[in-house]
């Protein structure tokens, strides 16, 4: 019984931290300058990238190195739906005259198409356990980037294109900030719910013991594919949201650096913990794009070959080796030992 209570407390604790975090974030605009709010908004979207990646890699235990595929697909879907003139004089000319649906719909469609892509990729790659999935997902983003080059009349090639200020998420930064914060909160709550549902528990059981799960009559393959769909749906929606946040789209959404940053955030925060990636995403994104850049890098002489990436990768290796369960588990253990 006491054991039960202990677990109860942890879960309520987790949620109350989350509520506290959201409350603090909700009132921050009173104190912070516009530009920091802008970065925070990007951070919230990034946290959803991280949490949705963790859903597949941490929870299900399949290393997905192609999560950016879904971010990018979501982004391009909403961008193209909003700028159908991109199809003009291409083989998809017929799409030119489709009137753009409202932005929330196109963002949602971005998620749906991303989920379909994820399910298709999952159907092909998840048949075999372990390493194949990691290797195949590692090379797939390249194919998508290549596609944006080959079909550059539509996708805008390396440069991408702008959806226009009128398609921005909100007319001002505070509005964007609030929308992304709400979006992050909703995504986390839904993913939290799924994680604690029967489905989530089954997925964890599969990760912990494949053979046992199979013996219990669980169709591992289909569960994994389903999880892939959920993970890529959130990646797609958040990718689409990002497009309307920054008003432009380009293949960087598919690219390796973004993938690495996601890995960095989740591993440092703690794989498979849900709260860990939130902490990690928050720390890493701000560290990389604000703290290191403004307070550290300018003071390092250029003769020393060190930059923010190097600092972060060293941090990643140290954390992976010394505390493979991430900062969150370490903090939790520390807290419980007290």
């Amino acid at each position: 019984m006491s054991k039960l209570r202990k677990y109860w407390n942890i879960d309520i604790g987790q949620l109350s931290y989350l509520i506290g975090f959201l409350l603090v974030m909700g009132v921050l605009p009173i104190f912070l300058p516009d530009t920091l709010l802008y970065i925070l908004g990007l951070t919230f979207i990034f946290i959803v990238f991280a949490v949705s990646w963790d859903f597949m890699t941490g929870l299900v235990g399949e290393v997905n190195l192609g999560h950016t595929i879904f971010i990018g697909v979501g982004g391009y879907v909403t961008a193209l739906l909003n700028v159908p003139t991109r199809f003009k004089n291409t083989f998809l000319d017929i799409l030119t005259n489709i009137p753009p649906p409202p932005i929330p719909i196109t963002i949602l469609l971005g998620g749906v198409i991303a989920a379909i892509t994820g399910i298709l990729i999952g159907l092909i790659t998840l048949r075999l356990r372990g390493w194949y999935f990691a290797l195949v997902t590692a090379i797939l983003p390249l194919l998508f980037i290549k596609a944006t080059y080959v079909l550059k009349d539509i996708f805008g090639g390396e440069e991408g294109f702008s959806v226009g200020l009128s398609k921005a998420l909100a007319p001002d930064t505070i509005g964007k900030y609030i929308i992304t914060l709400l979006f992050m909160a909703a995504s986390i709550l839904i993913l939290y719910g799924i994680k604690n549902s029967k489905l989530g528990l089954t997925l964890i059981a599969i990760r912990e013991d494949n053979t046992l799960a199979e013996a219990l009559g669980i169709n591992i393959y289909l569960y994994k594919v389903f999880a892939m769909g959920i993970s890529s749906f959130f990646a797609g929606v958040s990718g689409a949201l990002l497009v309307h946040y920054r008003v432009t789209i380009s293949p960087d959404l598919f690219d390796v650096p973004l993938m690495l940053l996601i890995i960095l955030a989740v591993v440092i925060g703690g794989l498979g913990t849900l709260i860990g990636p939130i902490i990690g995403g928050f720390l890493i994104y701000l560290l990389k794009y604000w703290v290191l850049k403004v307070y550290l890098i300018p003071y390092i002489p250029t003769t020393i070959p060190i930059n923010d990436d190097i600092i972060l990768y060293i941090l990643l290796i140290i954390i992976a080796v010394l505390m493979p369960h991430g900062i969150y588990e370490r903090l939790k253990r520390f807290y419980m030992a007290m």
Binding site: V63, L65, I263, V267, I310, I317, A320, P324
Partner: peptide, 16 residues
């Protein structure tokens, strides 16, 4: 012993 972490530390080393 940890597949995921092996991939991640070697990848981090490569990028470093």
């Amino acid at each position: 012993k940890n597949e995921v972490m092996t991939i991640i530390v070697t990848l981090a080393l490569a990028l470093l």
